[in-house]
């Protein structure tokens, strides 16, 4: 029985070509969270309807990974701000890590997607799909209070 749960939110455009297939990400993350005995939910955010579900999903989780896929750039960000999604996330106080497969910070003037100190997210940028693994490992260690 997993007592702690991570929610992976993937902001993905309905059009365009993602760097990594959703199925690959799901399998990789599920394998790792099984090993670490942590629960995992994955929610793809590509429509307004899927965006509106976020506050409810976040209420039921212990940690959050947010991935705004690079090809989608600022997909849904304006709508998320309007709906108060990020405020709702910030109020939960749960640990949050933003993951980018590509190193967005190697680009001039590039900024994290979650750049609000109130949210206080960590960031993994440029590790490819392994970035999800790094984020899951860091969160699992934090949730379990396990330094080793």
């Amino acid at each position: 029985m997993n007592s702690k749960k991570i929610l992976l939110l993937i902001f993905r455009s309905e059009t365009g070509t993602p760097l990594t297939a959703m199925e690959t990400i799901e399998q990789q993350c599920a394998r790792l969270t099984d090993q670490l005995n942590i629960g995992l939910d994955i929610h793809v955010v590509s429509t307004l309807e899927s965006l509106e579900k976020i506050p409810h999903l976040v209420d039921d989780t212990d940690a959050l990974i947010v991935s705004n896929e690079d090809y989608a750039k600022n997909s849904n960000k304006g709508a998320a701000v309007e709906l108060g999604i990020f405020e709702a996330i910030a109020q939960t106080g749960i640990p949050i890590i933003e993951v980018h497969e590509r190193n967005i910070l190697s680009e001039v003037n590039s900024r994290p997607y979650l750049d609000s100190p109130e949210i206080g997210a960590g960031l993994v940028s440029g590790m490819g799909p392994a970035g999800y693994s790094a984020a899951i490992r860091a969160l699992a260690r934090k949730l379990k209070g396990n330094a080793a």
Partner: peptide, 13 residues
């Protein structure tokens, strides 16, 4: 790659 804001456990991750 860049890893920030994960605390000291980032080294292990």
């Amino acid at each position: 790659a860049v890893v920030v804001g994960l605390g000291a456990s980032a080294y292990l991750a």
